[in-house]
């Protein structure tokens, strides 16, 4: 249970642990991608996961969302062990993931993309017998979600392909925020974006936290990480090298731990 993780971090014993990994190992033949990694995400925080290429960031995230099955180790959601068969299982458990290569249907409009796979049907006979989509309600809900997140977009009826990269990422993040019940995982959400658009997406990530959801942010971008993260989980050689905060450590410290120049 989370009791022993709480004793480890006596400083912040009040925060509940939402998602936890214990001693997770993942090997591919002779290659060890995860070498007994621990992970801990607390309620309502933004946890950045950083690490050099090949340090095991992606594999860790995939293991947490069921895209990869760990060779050994334990994953706990709200303190209970979980075994996700695939990303869909994780989604049903309340974990939403925003992928780097935007998982969108470009020719469909914003509302359709927000509700893709979770479409709303009309009420009454039209919905139950004729299976008719409630396009109006989906548009309204989509518009409400976007304005709640204070993300500005052209008309909700526009095709996603007509949007800029930042706006598209905004839709992807909004989709996760709209449906996540526990936490949102974001894999390099700002990698393809310009400075101004990056700012918009970071703002969105903050508003997700304001909604009470925990966020895992995988990023290469140190200034972004330091601007937004509550804690930083540093990966090195398939293990957790350290967990630091932007207040306790500088960017140089973090890079030094990442590269192994300094032992954590």
């Amino acid at each position: 249970m989370s009791a022993d993780s709480m004793t480890r971090d006596a400083t912040d014993a009040s925060s509940r642990v939402v998602l936890e990994a214990r001693n997770v190992v993942k090997t591919y033949g002779h290659v060890t991608a995860l070498d007994g990694v621990d992970f801990e995400l607390r309620a309502g925080e933004i946890l950045a996961v950083v690490g050099d290429n090949g340090a095991g960031k992606s594999t860790l995230i995939k293991a947490l969302t069921g895209a990869v099955h760990p060779t050994s180790g334990e994953i706990l959601l709200d303190g209970a062990p979980v075994h996700f068969k695939g990303p869909l299982d994780a989604r049903h458990a309340g974990i939403e993931t925003v992928y780097q290569d935007l998982a969108m249907a470009p020719a469909l409009d914003i509302a359709s993309n927000l509700f893709l796979g979770r479409e709303l049907r009309c009420e009454g006979v039209m919905g139950s017998v004729f299976r008719r989509l409630d396009k109006k309600r989906m548009r309204e809900e989509a518009r409400r979600a976007m304005s709640e997140l204070k993300f500005r977009l052209p008309s909700i009826g526009n095709a996603v392909e007509a949007l800029s990269g930042g706006q598209r990422q905004g839709v992807a993040v909004a989709r996760a925020a709209l449906f996540a019940r526990k936490l949102v995982i974001m894999d390099e959400p700002t990698a393809a974006l310009g400075v101004r658009e990056t700012g918009q997406v970071l703002e969105l990530i903050r508003s997700i936290r304001e909604r009470g959801l925990a966020v895992v942010l995988i990023s290469h971008n140190m200034p972004n990480v330091f601007e937004i993260a509550d804690r930083i989980h540093i990966m090195r050689l398939g293990r957790r090298a350290a967990v630091v905060t932007p207040q306790s450590h500088s960017m140089n410290d973090v890079v030094a731990i990442m590269t192994g120049a300094v032992a954590a």
Partner: peptide, 13 residues
């Protein structure tokens, strides 16, 4: 959605 982006369709379930 499948014609547009089968991978995205799969990811949304």
């Amino acid at each position: 959605a499948i014609g547009n982006n089968p991978e995205a369709a799969r990811l949304v379930g």
